[in-house]
Amino acid sequence: MAVEFIDIVETSLAGIGTGSLMALTGVAFVIIYKATKVINLAIGEMLMIGAFVFYGFSAGLALPIWASVPLTLVVAALIGGLIERTMIRPLLKDNPVSVFMVTIGLTSVLIGVVELVWSAEPRRLPEFLPSQPVLLGDAFIPSKTAYSFVIAAAAMAVLITVFAFWRGGIALRATATDRAAASSVGIDVPGVFSFSWMLAAVVAALAGILVGSVGGISSAMGLFGLSVFVVVIVGGLDSILGALIAGLFIGWLEAMVGRFMGGEFKLLATFTILLVVLVVRPYGLFGTHEIERL
């Protein structure tokens, strides 16, 4: 089978499109990890619940897009805050493994809630992105992929700017560096924790809307989270830049493997990469290598 160059280019572009969504979800994961040191295994399900809430507003209540999106993000923020207050905060002083397992429980709860309200049937989101395909030179990119890439890129640009310059972003980074010190200079550390979960939920919900508009939504779409773990581990759990680069890379890799080897090899490829990274460089490509002190 001769592989045509244009085929490679188109697959790569589509992969980078998906990768940008992985990167965006990865950033949501990193925000939580940076602020609270919690490994949130339910990030894929937070994405899912965001997509379903959007479905509820846009299809269920038939609200226009300009109302559905902000409403979804507000609801997502509330859900994120609720999770943090009721499930995460009571355990923050415990060992990290407990909190990690709480997020596993959360996975199961969120899937159950979605199936209870919307059933396990896959659904389609209302069309809201332009359907005119995008041509980049000779390469043809599906319009939804292209537009969701643009939106994801814009969202990440905003996030990075916020983190760098806004007071709250600085408070978040200070908390990430040293909780006790942050608290002693007057930063409201519990507030930062809540805020980080709310922000992450918003980012994940946005990613969920985009993922859902490209590929439809279902109670199994949390599986997207599996690839996102690979992204954040390859990139380094506490590195936003790492999530960006690894997200684009994993998205590209999955697309290439899926196109040229078959869909069933996608997860195999990503998880093999994951195992290699875990063994060779456990703190990721851009993560902080914590020196263990006795």
Partner: peptide, 24 residues
């Protein structure tokens, strides 16, 4: 009966969370 599977998932999840928080 169609709500069985989702309710089961929710209960499993809540049991994990509840025990970790209240009776580790």
């Amino acid at each position: 009966s169609i709500y069985l599977a989702p309710v089961r998932n929710i209960i499993f999840g809540l049991l994990i969370i509840g025990f970790l928080i209240f009776e580790p």
